[in-house]
Design a protein around this nucleic acid. Structure first.
Lengths: 159, 159
DNA sequence: TTGTGTGCAAAAGCTTTGCATGTTG
DNA sequence: CAACATGCAAAGCTTTTGCACACAA
């Protein structure tokens, strides 16, 4: 089985993010609880974007004993140490994604089917630099979402 | 009183947006109710960004008889005919602003005090064109928010 | 007159909070 | 063992929905 190399104990990315998370917890005198690590591992086992409820349900299905409160609490910790990014794709529902090892990217969202594509463009960094200078802001992060229709491939466009 | 020239009956912008709204209602066979026009006028009398609840309260304070349901319903109509823009500035709360007569702009938000500045940059249009082509999307709109701190001027940064 | 729009209140959906219990440091 | 984190459930907030009545076409 070739995927044994990516099992929980061998995945080098997972080891690295666990280290980063531990350092973050230590530096803020937050406690290292099994729930916090379980949530981190669950997130890094998954791909794509997810919301808090889906993560909670997924933990429950795997028989972890966690509460919604802990899921939200831990997500905030992970956002604070840059291991997870939080997005709002036009709805009143926060979406999350793991961010370690991924390069900076923005999103293109299909308003018909909800599909999310990712893209990179260096001009966004230039805009951030210029506007930070011009408007005397220390810019820490940004959110760029393009909305449209993925015509040909969209399952809902051809309705 | 010099501001009489901008009163409800003389404001040319207001007349124009009322015409646009009327055309939109007609073309969709939606009814022209006094509530819908009252909300439109209230929005165009105000500046800056506002949320649905603030608009509702403001209408109530002026003794209009409107409901939250109608406020939300009308805001959606106005967004659909491009007279109002809807934003999410990182919170679970939709913010709105009038858009007729304003050129396209994006936002810079202070994460400490919530202040919102506006800016324009032509590069964002280039990014939209390029990514639409590249990823086979018909891009209809976008949302670009830069987040940071307005250090010197920020009332909450110096705490 | 007919059916859409409205006000009101209740419900829904996501997120946060309070409290008693459990567990880390 | 003291403080912090957790689970659970309830509350909070924004937004949506159901229903009876009003009114635009």
């Amino acid at each position: 089985m070739s995927n044994m190399a990516t099992s929980k104990n061998d995945d080098p990315i997972l080891k690295e993010v666990v280290n980063i998370f531990s350092a973050h917890l230590e530096s803020h005198s937050f406690r290292k609880t099994p729930e916090r690590y379980a949530i981190l591992e669950e997130i890094y086992r998954r791909d794509d974007h997810f919301d808090a409820e889906a993560l909670y349900i997924h933990m429950k299905n795997q028989n972890y004993r966690v509460s919604r409160a802990t899921v939200y609490n831990t997500l905030e910790l992970l956002v604070n140490c840059d291991l997870v990014k939080k997005h709002q794709f036009g709805k009143n529902l926060a979406q999350y994604e793991k961010s370690y090892g991924y390069k900076q990217h923005d999103h293109l969202i299909c308003v018909d089917c909800g599909k999310v594509l990712e893209f990179c463009d260096p001009r966004i960094q230039q805009i951030k630099n210029m506007m930070g200078d011009l408007l005397k802001f220390q810019i820490t992060h940004h959110s760029l979402n393009l909305y449209g229709r993925c015509d040909g491939a969209c399952p809902k466009t051809a309705k």
